[in-house]
Amino acid sequence: MKLIEFKQVSKTYKNGVTALADVSVSIDKGEFVFVIGLTASGKSTFIKMLYREEKPTKGTVIVGGLNVGKIRNRKVYKLRRRIGIVFQDFKLLPKLTVYENVAFALECVGLKEKEIRPKVMEALEHVGLKNKVRSFPGELSGGEQQRVCIARAIVNDPKILICDEPTGNLDPKTSKEIMDVIENINKNLGTTIIMATHDQDIVNRMKKRVLLIKQGILAGDYAKGSYKAG
């Protein structure tokens, strides 16, 4: 079952830069996919289209049954509730506690307090942060903050988890721990994972599907790829 589909997608920015040219790819349910490429290769644009931070100028992007290019600004939340996003810079609300940050994603959907609590605790358990519920993000290490971000991304039970360089700001040891968390989510919850990364070690070790983007073109799609493949 295809969860994500790019059909001849091109993106040209207003300043004339072409970030993606004629990219076609599809990703099935439950897959774990790395998206690799140099800075300015179009990798970020590819990822941003998945959560409609960017719209394609040509072609169609379908995510979880929704046509991303056709979603109006006011309706973007419908897409965002079906996916979870993990950011390089965590994007936590500094004035909210760990619990509140994770609960936040459920509150804005309008769930009952009774339903929210067990879901938040479950998500925090998945990332191993159950003992830091009352801390504020500023009191946590980078790795712990990223775990909170992951917990917030999965608390909605999304089918797709989009990770935009989740280990970009972390040291190798912490990166490995984060990757273990993400891999477990893929294995245990069956969540489809799309992850953009620069980290060669991670890609080489995990032996997952790799999409290589080079100068806006999908240059390679390897079933059990490594960074060297590009």
């Binding site: 973007v76 939340y77 965002r80 994007k91 936040f104 994603a105 804005c108 309008g110 917030r152 909605n156």
Partner: peptide, 13 residues
């Protein structure tokens, strides 16, 4: 921005 990214509707924001 974060509210929008985690799926809050504009009204709820």
């Amino acid at each position: 921005e974060i509210m929008r990214l985690v799926g809050a509707s504009n009204g709820a924001i």
